[in-house]
């Protein structure tokens, strides 16, 4: 998964910080767990992060188990609406397609889904979480896709400018 890869590529220094910021302990039941570290040691960051995992590569057909981690970094005192959207050609066999979460404590929530895929999908499976405080001063939109969308990316340009940079001001 991309997220794990980014963890592993961080330097030792930053990995240390990163790990302290994660609270991934889980009892596997979907219940919210306690954070492993004092959340107040964490800085400005997204209040909630989604991590959606499934078999890689995605099978062309069959039943697929998807695991969704809902990492709560900051208490969210507004209702959070969680949805799993399956495209045409897929069917959600188990797991709630939508639910309202109370994310009042930092920690990690787990959700599992079973999806039947009847053939190559035209669109990915998408998990989203949305929240907005009643006063309108805060909100977030978290979204993850399975399979992960290919990055748009910058296309390689085989051409290079005749000079590495301008030699002086343009006027």
């Amino acid at each position: 998964m991309k997220i794990l890869h980014s963890i592993l590529t961080a330097s030792a220094l930053c990995a240390c910080v990163a790990l302290s910021a994660c609270s991934t302990s889980s009892n596997g039941s979907g219940a919210q767990t306690n954070p492993s570290v004092d959340p107040t040691q964490q800085g400005m960051r997204a209040p909630v992060i989604l991590v959606l995992r499934g078999p890689d590569p995605m099978p062309a057909a069959g039943d697929i188990k998807l695991d969704l981690e809902i990492r709560v970094n900051e208490p969210v005192n507004a209702p959070t609406y969680l949805k799993l959207m399956v495209p045409q050609g897929a069917q959600l066999l188990s797991g709630a397609p939508q639910e309202t979460l109370a994310l009042g404590q930092p920690g990690t929530l787990l959700r599992s889904y079973m999806v039947r895929v009847n053939g190559p999908l035209q669109a990915p499976i998408v998990a989203v979480a949305d929240a907005k405080d009643p006063g309108g001063a805060f909100g977030f939109h978290a979204e993850r896709k399975y399979p992960a969308a290919a990055p748009v990316g910058v296309a390689p340009n085989p051409n290079r400018p005749p000079v590495p940079r301008p030699a002086g001001p343009p006027r």
Partner: peptide, 17 residues
């Protein structure tokens, strides 16, 4: 960050909690 877009209005002195 990591697929989550979040926003804060500093003029209103409120946040997620």
């Amino acid at each position: 960050q990591e697929g989550t877009v979040f926003w804060v209005d500093i003029s209103k002195y409120t946040y997620s909690n």
